[in-house]
Design a protein around this nucleic acid. Sequence first.
DNA 1: CGAGTAAACGCAACAGAGTTGCGCAAGGTG
DNA 2: CACCTTGCGCAACTCTGTTGCGTTTACTCG
Lengths: 125, 125
Amino acid sequence: MPRPSHVRDAVQGQLRGSNRHVWTVEEMLAELRAAGVAADFSSVFRSLVWCEEQGSVKRVDVGDGRARFEPAGDHHEHARCERCGTVAEVPGCVLADIPERVGSLTGFAINAHRLVFIGLCPDCQ
Amino acid sequence: MPRPSHVRDAVQGQLRGSNRHVWTVEEMLAELRAAGVAADFSSVFRSLVWCEEQGSVKRVDVGDGRARFEPAGDHHEHARCERCGTVAEVPGCVLADIPERVGSLTGFAINAHRLVFIGLCPDCQ
DNA sequence: CGAGTAAACGCAACAGAGTTGCGCAAGGTG
DNA sequence: CACCTTGCGCAACTCTGTTGCGTTTACTCG
């Protein structure tokens, strides 16, 4: 039985309560500290990995070399601003029947995909 | 005027002549050495970056944390085998009009995308 | 033909992000 | 109350990619 963990609790609180939908470890750490929670990078990282293993969090790679985490939920794609790095959520799966077509083109058995759109966010345009 | 560079020449020869279409630096290095070319990791890396700057090579990120390089050509997507790491090319752009739809959903001005399908290659199925 | 200059190369060091080992602290349990 | 396990912070380590530097080597200009 897990013992109380103020770091993990705070991480889960952020995941649940914030209006942000993706976090790097650094971002999560900064928000926790802004909320008065004392925490270390590695503890936040381990909490996020723990949540990932529980299935409540998914790891997202938008191709900028930093790991991001988001609450698990409906599958969706992401758009990353190439100027400021903001990551927006693209609701719904825009790919529809494409994986089957890709499968028949390549012989691969496709079971996942990673799609990130790159451009300029509204603020950076 | 560039001086003769046996490493760069060999790299370009591989890019042109091999039936492989994406290389990590390690893979390129291994093939060069198998072909009897003496070269160092950093020299191969610099040659690939040089080709990238010339526009003859594009850098590809398939989300496994390793940089790959491919000869520049028609835009296409990639499929990566999650077991053995093989990367296959998906000919053509399967996305068609999706970027505009994404733009209107998110407000982003989309000018690129990164799409990788993940699954099992024919050998690994 | 020789001196000078700039490019190419290999070696090794550095950088950034993620990951892990370890010792201490602290909550739960018998 | 003693013990045991887990959480935490610190620091070290990994893995790629990247870069600095000294040496070699090929051009070029006198």
